[in-house]
């Protein structure tokens, strides 16, 4: 009996070290953040000395126009960059999915922007956008156009362009890997049936790549919600609050306003938002899979 029970326990004991590490490394900080978000806590105090305020931080934030504005900036930014990066990245992958000489060199070149430290990317773009000495305005002026006030009048667009430049390669490289691992038989069958290149892309390649694309998009979306350094260096959130994404607001709330409790509550809002998005994405994938399975069954039954 005892040995039987021990046998049953064995797998859990093997799992225990991993579970403990996970609890300490993941759940403890998370719990700390949630606990902190219910307190009026400034960085000169230990968390024990701070005062419990219930949901006050969450309620204040909910009605805070600045927080709402930065939430809407974040949503605009995240969806804009992910959509643009998906279109460009997948497009590039479709174009380059063939045997070109020197492909490995090209691939390395394409992913270079991803390897650059975000602070450097921010600085580089900030100088390229500079109103007088920046590359873009010098080009524009040498072609006889008016200079554009990139980081003033069009700050959000400028930040979006910089992010697309840096992160499109990520989507490109994953899409290319997905394309190259597609079953060749399906494509050959389509070709024999006389499908055009566009038809192959729309009806075969893209649907088969979909699971990879959804995960890729999700990863990028989560990342885009948390991007901080590039925007911090380029615009510091300005002008006004036009590029102040939530991650930047959290950092300012903690360091400039010295309100750790509010910053923690903001992080939790962001966490909840990301959780909802992730769950929604997975739900969509599940639904699609179920539909595909049903279709497959129907075809089999009819056949």
């Amino acid at each position: 009996m005892t040995s039987q029970r021990l046998n049953k326990l064995t797998p859990y004991m093997f799992m225990a070290p991993a579970a403990i590490i996970m609890a300490v490394a993941l759940l403890y900080p998370l719990g700390y953040m949630i606990y902190g978000s219910f307190r009026d806590w400034n960085p000169s105090q230990t968390i024990g000395e701070s005062e419990f305020v219930g949901f006050k931080n969450y309620i204040t934030l909910f009605y805070d126009p600045a927080f709402r504005e930065s939430l809407s900036v974040t949503l605009t930014f995240a969806f804009a960059v992910v959509t643009a990066e998906l279109v460009i990245g997948v497009g590039l992958a479709l174009l380059l999915d063939r045997n070109i000489r020197g492909m490995s060199v090209l691939r390395t070149l394409f992913i270079l922007p991803m390897m650059i430290a975000p602070v450097v990317v921010g600085l580089m773009w900030r100088y390229m956008y500079h109103p007088t000495v920046g590359t873009f305005n010098r080009w524009l002026k040498s072609w006889g156009f008016e200079g554009v006030d990139w980081l003033g009048q069009h700050a959000l667009l400028s930040v979006i362009i910089a992010d697309i430049w840096q992160w499109t390669p990520f989507i490109f490289i994953l899409s290319l890997a997905a394309l190259q691992s597609l079953p060749r038989s399906a494509l050959e069958a389509a070709r024999i049936d006389g499908a055009t290149a566009w038809q192959q892309i729309w009806y075969i390649k893209l649907p088969l790549m979909m699971p990879v694309l959804i995960v890729t998009a999700l990863l990028r979306l989560i990342d885009a919600f948390k991007v901080l350094e590039v925007i911090l260096v380029m615009t510091e959130g300005g002008p006004g609050l036009s590029t102040e994404i939530v991650a930047l607001r959290i950092s300012r709330t903690a360091t400039e306003f010295r309100e750790l409790g509010t910053a923690a509550a903001m992080s939790n809002y962001l966490l909840i938002l990301l959780l909802v998005l992730t769950l929604a994405m997975f739900a969509i994938t599940r639904l699609q899979e179920a539909r595909a399975a049903r279709l497959a069954r129907q075809i089999q039954e009819e056949g």
Binding site: N42, A66, G240, R258
Partner: peptide, 21 residues
């Protein structure tokens, strides 16, 4: 004063709107 950080940030972002928008 301890709350100046918050007021300063609001003043600065609002003035930036005056200058750019």
């Amino acid at each position: 004063i301890p709350v100046w950080g918050k007021i300063n940030a609001d003043l600065g972002t609002t003035l930036s709107k005056v200058l750019t928008e």
